[in-house]
Design a protein around this nucleic acid. Structure first.
Lengths: 111, 111
DNA sequence: CTTTCTATATTGTATTGCAAGGTAGTAAAA
DNA sequence: TTTTACTACCTTGCAATACAATATAGAAAG
């Protein structure tokens, strides 16, 4: 079981959180995720997510000059994005709690 | 963001853990997951997973009579299943840690 | 002028959760 | 006896998503 399948659905929420903490662009997000302990997240993963979230109205983008390369597309959260982030955190907390309870062996003999 | 996408890849590992704690059958696993705080996991979700894991040699099955209904297919972990479970727990711990660090705002100003 | 790093985007594929549907056994209610 | 409900198994087809592979291009350094 690789982490790649476990990421599904979590990545979008995590990226919302990253943008919420600081306005940033896709290329930087990949390195950020690496630093945080997610695996190496490839660009083929990130860019579709960014475009999808923008299309769904969760983030908005503005182009800005870079000091070292092509223009960067900086993203920030829309109001819908902030709401989605809150919902993500709630869902994550619930899921994490459920799995932790399972792994601790709680409910082992309830039947 | 619904929990359904967040479950991807996690369900298989969680089911391995449930079977590891106590030999059980698919129908019971659905109710078990409900009690633990996962959503209502439908049978269309569970049965394909069980067949897949059996095909992949992670679990083995034996039929037994039921006191209240059709025969039950009881599953237990194979050696490969135990290994997969250990790997899942490790991957999960790593992923959980990464997300928690992110949500706590660590690494916010490392750039 | 070639390489390397930055930075964006697209296409196609595999995995997976799940709704919807189907089959059957047991048992209690009507 | 018929009906209803619960148990218990399984299959088909769809939608969402991560990712490899590929493409494009600007900037800087060698």
């Amino acid at each position: 079981m690789s982490t790649t399948q476990m990421l599904k659905g979590l990545l979008e929420g995590c990226i919302l959180e990253i943008i919420n903490q600081q306005e940033t662009y896709a290329y930087e997000i990949t390195t950020k995720l690496g630093q945080l302990g997610f695996g190496e997240i490839s660009e083929g993963t990130i860019y579709p997510i960014m475009l999808r979230m923008q299309k769904n109205g969760l983030i908005s983008a503005t182009m800005r000059e870079s000091s070292s390369g092509p223009k960067r597309k900086y993203y920030s959260l829309t109001e819908a994005g902030e709401t989605a982030l809150e919902e993500f955190i709630e869902s994550w907390t619930q899921l994490r709690t459920a799995i932790e309870r399972l792994l601790k062996g709680e409910g082992k003999y309830d039947r």
